[in-house]
Design a protein around this nucleic acid. Structure first.
Length: 424
RNA sequence: GGAGGAGUGGCCGAGUGGCUUAAGGCGACGGUCUUGAAAACCGUUGUACCGCAAGGUACCGGGGGUUCGAAUCCCUCCUCCUCCGCCA
């Protein structure tokens, strides 16, 4: 959520943001509703003032007639108050609904573009391997090795589900453990968080309302399954006022993630790329409102993930995401794409977003600065690793001619010291 | 799941319809005193909205109601505690 005062003062900035982010919110209509609401609020407040005073006076009036007149006057005030309150109640949800959709203006250096075609490659790391034999894809490899079972996953839970078994399950755990250990070593505080959370955490982090169709719901308990630990971790301090001295908060959480993939029917249907349930290690930073410091942390969480990919020896590239591809609440955003032979190119494995105060306004997450002033924090997040998606390049790039998999050195301590995965 | 009890400011805690602009205490901050500190004393001590300001308004777990007037009475939901049942 953006600051409505800023919207009033710098309207053009937000209209530009709407164009760049391809948002259809009607800013002028919003401002007009806002003005009506403000007038109503003022009138309501004046009425309350008069009512409060009348209430005090009545207690002291001795004369019965006079007292009755005062009570009658009070009835009038209450009737008028009810009227105005009703008008305001009709107006406020409309304003709220629109406010949730107003895009955050992006970083001045963010590339301006209509969609993913406008993203800009920042750098590449690692060599794309030349196999010298006919390479298999991760499903062929995993099935033959008995470590990936798609058929039975579908039997249990329908399309886009899978079972990892044996060394597949161990490799999945290994990648996550390496990622979590790396982040703890860097001083991030590890957390386990609920994956079933309230709607306000989704609204607060900006996943709702737009992404509501992507979430599995548990209507009986009014809870939703998270698609990322970003939701509970960023919401952890909601409705709190932190002290500047405790910032920045650096958190890391491993969690299950659930996505309905509504609207993605027929897209990426093959293999472990787009699935309903996966596991992810996510890093979240909450810092004070300082653009320079936030930029530093944003680069830091990007570097952390790159470091992990380098440990895993997986070739990747970093993209700076353009305005049209970055989403309503994002200020600046990078993706890491990892080379996946079976998909014929680099595909998204990480997403690093700086959201400034977009989430913290919705979450009511603030801090007291050195001058005792209360301000909204800045929040940002990035994937450390998501599995099994990362297993796609991991299996495919480390395959040998005989169908075995060479385990990257960094993962061997988590795989009983073994160098290879071979068929049983 | 069943039966009871409780939710007041950063914390403790008073308050059962108007004298509460929420007493009092603790903590925190500032000041006086002191070579420095402690003690003592004095003062300050929430968030949000409207307003240039003075000031006004809302908030006593959330929502709704009764009343001229609600922290206080009623309804409902939530959370926590105790006991019983079930359970990884």
């Amino acid at each position: 959520m953006i600051d409505i005062k800023d919207l009033r003062a710098n309207t053009e900035r937000y209209k530009t943001a709407c164009e760049q982010k391809r948002s259809s919110v009607d800013i002028d209509a919003l401002l007009s509703l806002d003005e009506q609401a403000r007038d109503l609020r003022q009138e309501l407040q004046d009425l309350t003032t008069e009512k409060n005073q009348a209430g005090k006076t009545i207690a002291q009036i001795k004369d019965a007639d006079e007292r009755q007149r005062a009570i009658d006057r009070m009835s009038e005030l209450k009737a008028r108050e009810k009227e105005i309150a009703a008008q305001l109640e009709a107006l406020e949800p409309q304003i709220e609904e629109m406010m949730l959709l107003v895009p955050l203006p992006s970083h001045p250096e963010s590339p301006v573009g209509p969609d993913e075609s406008g993203n800009v490659e920042v750098r590449r790391w690692g060599e794309v391997r030349d196999f010298g034999f006919e390479a298999k894809d991760h499903i062929e490899l995993g099935t033959a090795l008995g470590i990936v079972d798609l058929e039975r996953g579908v039997k249990l839970s329908g399309s886009r589900n899978y079972v990892l078994r044996g060394d597949g399950a161990l490799l999945h755990r290994a990648v996550l453990s390496l990622a979590l250990d790396l982040m703890v070593e860097k001083g991030f505080e590890p957390m386990t968080v609920p994956v079933l959370t309230k709607e306000k955490t989704f609204m607060g982090t900006g996943w709702f309302p737009e992404g509501k169709a992507q979430a599995y719901q548990v209507p009986e308990d009014e809870l939703f399954l998270v698609g990322t630990a970003e939701v509970p971790v960023t919401s952890f301090h909601m409705d709190e006022i932190l002290d500047e001295s405790e910032l920045p908060k650096r958190y890391v959480a491993q969690s299950l993630c659930f996505r309905r993939e509504a609207g993605a029917a027929g897209k990426d249907t093959y293999g472990l790329y787009r699935i309903h349930q996966f596991e992810k290690v996510e890093q979240v930073i909450v810092c004070k409102y300082d653009l320079e410091e936030a930029e530093k942390w944003h680069q830091c969480i990007l570097a952390n993930s790159e470091e992990l990919m380098q440990k895993l020896e997986l070739p990747y590239r970093v993209l700076e995401i353009c305005t049209g591809d970055m989403g309503t609440g994002k200020y600046r955003m990078y993706d890491i794409e990892t080379y996946m032979p079976s998909r014929g190119g680099y595909c998204e494995t990480h997403s690093a977003s700086n959201l400034l105060d977009f989430q913290t306004r919705r979450l009511n997450l603030r801090y007291r600065d050195a001058d005792r002033k209360v301000r909204h924090c800045i929040s940002m997040n990035n994937t450390v690793v998501a599995s099994p998606r990362v297993l796609i390049p991991l299996l495919e790039l480390n395959q040998n001619a005989d169908g075995s998999i060479t385990i990257p050195v960094a993962l061997r301590p988590y795989m009983g010291g073994r160098e290879r995965i071979v068929a049983k």
